[in-house]
Nucleic acid binder design. Structure first.
Lengths: 224, 224
DNA sequence: TTAAGAAGTTGACGGCGCGTCACCGATCTG
DNA sequence: CAGATCGGTGACGCGCCGTCAACTTCTTAA
């Protein structure tokens, strides 16, 4: 049985010299999450059973249920971990933005780069039942969307953005980010910068401003 | 060999004077799909078991497996049905397009209107495990994406579009369409036209061209 | 018309994943 | 160190899974 190496779990801030009990608890939780990561990557999310995860663990079945209610909850926890890593990066990138362009560009670039680097599990989970795709909007993920909307609203208040429908704009950015990152990851030479440039140009000037493909010359802004 | 129909009036577009066996097969398949639709809507996709579907049916368990392998396959069939309905509409709408604007506008408008009208099951299936969203890219759905890309490429060839990256542009349109339709459907007064206008303007002229909101209230859904 | 054969349905069955809980060892507290 | 508490353990009963031999219904051909 080949142990498919999955991406190492995001480094964890565990800095509590707590009692033995507490330590074991943290450890068990992590053991389960790590096992789940491997099993999900191997069999795909859909085909994985709670038992599969337990078997990939030295723990007893009852113990699993002390930590999670179901495989969905395990996945949620994994999503939350990821969201908590990328959200600060996105926020920080947008905070620095002095123009619309910087705001949009920073958002896409940060996202795409993250997907390429740590996006292993994203791909693994897509590995589903052939054609099933899923996205789990956990509390932390939803909070990330809310942050984007807030940042847009702040940008509007600052006069950086025109007063557009922030909710729809957020949705559009999220939709493009997720859908494009999928396509990007499938390409031979996945290029986060190129993808981010494409999305940024689209959002700034529309289709007509997009870089011309065959034409060596790119990105000439030609208004409507 | 004209056989007097014992069957009820052909409410279904099955204009096939086929044998009894064939008739029953079509009927059983439809019985299962109809039952599944109700059960999925009631308990959500994740919580539904094959047995739940069978129970919502007068058929035996073995019979179910003559038609589908799993609940996933049932869902696939439902998705395919939907895709086969909307795809011709989208194609037709885009075929008529004489300008970039018409192309984009027709795509979004057709899609959003369809979601509002027939999008019931879309919402029902989201009813999942609280936070799980799914999209099943069945062969027919994927074919729809391919059609969009083809149409973009054709439009480029015609000189309608600049020679952009058709794959990414397709992804961007798909991403915005799905993500926005979700937000749209959640709003009190879901407005397909408004949503389509937003997306179209965004794709044509970028953020700066987007309609300015008059009431200044940017968020109406989702309590922050 | 009828009988052989094909096609499709049925539901009981063995297997297994599910979540629980009584038991017990390990850890904490005073 | 003893008693109290916490949490790990794994066997258990339940229900879902997909299968398949027996049976019913339809088709075909003489």
């Amino acid at each position: 049985m080949e142990q498919t190496e999955t991406a190492p779990p995001p480094s964890r801030p565990a800095a509590k010299p707590a009692g033995k009990r507490e330590q074991t608890k943290q450890q068990n939780r992590q053991i389960i999450l790590d096992a789940a990561r491997i099993v999900f990557a191997e069999h795909g999310y859909g085909a994985t059973t709670v038992r599969d995860i337990i078997r990939a663990t030295p723990l007893a079945s009852g113990t699993f249920y002390n930590y999670f209610q179901s495989k969905e909850e395990v996945y949620q926890a994994m999503q939350d971990e990821t969201a908590l890593v990328i959200r600060p990066k996105l926020r920080e990138a947008r905070e620095k933005a002095g123009t619309v362009e910087e705001f949009i560009s920073a958002t896409f670039q940060t996202f795409f780069e993250f997907v390429l680097r740590d996006g292993v599990d994203v791909r693994a989970l897509r590995h589903n039942a052939d054609t099933m795709r899923m996205r789990m909007d956990t509390p932390e993920v939803v909070a990330g969307f809310d942050e984007l909307r807030e940042d847009i609203e702040k940008a509007i208040a600052r006069g950086l953005f025109p007063p557009v429908d922030a909710d729809y704009l957020m949705a559009a950015i999220v939709g493009v980010a997720f859908e494009m990152s999928e396509r990007m990851a499938r390409r031979e030479e996945a290029d986060a910068k190129a993808a981010a440039d494409f999305a940024t140009t689209l959002f700034l000037g529309g289709i007509r401003s997009l870089p011309h493909k065959s034409d060596g010359k790119a990105t000439e802004a030609s208004g409507a």
